[in-house]
């Protein structure tokens, strides 16, 4: 039986594509490209199923193979690392030559078997598919092969369980709570600043990233300016910002006032130029001491 001309056109369009995809699987380096080749191959196979009067299998092929199996492959590729390219160095000497020879030999044997086989004249499935291909298949599946269907169901459940068991990872160490994690973090960097650094200076006259914030003692905190600005030397010191009034206030002795009524923040010390020589951030104890001092001075005033 020869096929219709339309089917011949379909076949000769798809067959070279399929062979090219299979060769691509053999030669491409990246696993994702190989997966794309196989997806194309499988969709083409589905089309050929439909051309071969097996529409049900064609749909199942698309759903099961390209939809589920190849997606599973891509999923595992993501897990293993998409970039994993196969090294093309031969580890076993002569493996490539032997493999290609074996493949060609297998093809020759298969084709010679086909050439020597006396296939009967093709009947076609028009009569078998009379009540619809899925219906006819269902009759065979649930009649002659009912037991096989049950066994296959058991197999699928077993495979699902196997997938769960094989990919399950036993927890060896106890799960860490947030409390343990945070105490670990504190213990790992003793004396380090755990809270985020203070924001850079925001003053009534000036609101900029490049001026340091002032601590409760009135001293500028160098860490509050972005590290990048400090390294570039673009940080300004608090004295520059405060302008002319600062000298006045300094002589008046308002050393510990962090903020005044006019909104101008006077720098604490006579020459508190932060920049590279700015004092380091104060630790908690020091700040407490200074706060007590400030309270005292206020009281005396």
């Amino acid at each position: 039986m020869t096929t219709s001309a339309a089917e011949a056109v379909l076949f000769w369009c798809l067959a070279p594509l399929m062979v090219a995809a299979a060769v691509g699987l053999l030669v491409v380096r990246r696993a994702v490209h190989a997966a794309v080749c196989v997806v194309g191959l499988m969709i083409s196979v589905a089309v050929l199923y439909i051309a071969n009067q097996a529409p049900f299998l064609g749909v199942v092929q698309v759903v099961v193979y390209t939809g589920a199996v190849m997606m599973l492959f891509l999923f595992v590729l993501m897990l293993v690392g998409v970039d994993s390219a196969d090294s093309l160095v031969e580890t076993i000497k002569g493996q490539r030559g032997l493999g290609v020879t074996f493949g060609i030999g297998l093809l020759v044997i298969l084709l010679s078997v086909l050439a020597h086989t006396d296939l009967p004249e093709a009947i076609g499935l028009t009569t078998a598919n009379q009540e619809g291909n899925p219906n006819a298949l269902a009759e065979i599946l649930y009649g002659q092969y009912a037991l096989a269907m049950v066994v296959v169901g058991v197999l699928l459940v077993t495979a699902a369980l196997a997938g769960l068991v094989l990919t399950h990872r036993a927890r060896i160490a106890p799960r860490l709570s947030q409390r343990e994690l945070s105490s670990r973090r504190v213990a790992a960097r003793p004396g380090a600043l755990l809270a985020p650094p203070p924001a850079p200076g925001v003053y009534a006259q000036n609101n900029a990233m490049d001026t340091p914030a002032l601590g409760p003692d009135g001293r500028p905190i160098e860490e509050s300016v972005s590290r990048v600005l400090r390294i570039r030397g673009q940080a300004r010191d608090a004295g520059e910002v405060a302008g002319g009034r600062e000298a006045e206030r300094l002589t008046a002795g308002h050393d510990h006032l962090p903020m005044t009524a006019t909104g101008v923040v006077p720098p604490a010390h006579p020459a508190p130029h932060p920049g590279p020589q700015a004092p380091p951030a104060l630790d908690a104890v020091e700040i407490e001491d200074l706060a007590a001092e400030a309270a005292e001075s206020e009281a005396s005033e």
Binding site: A22, L41, V80, D86, R96, G99, L106, L110
Partner: peptide, 22 residues
Amino acid sequence: VLAMILFALGTTTVLLRRNAII
């Protein structure tokens, strides 16, 4: 014939590629 060519190519892939997924 097409099925046989594909089968031979698949076999060769199994023999030659060392990435388990491929």
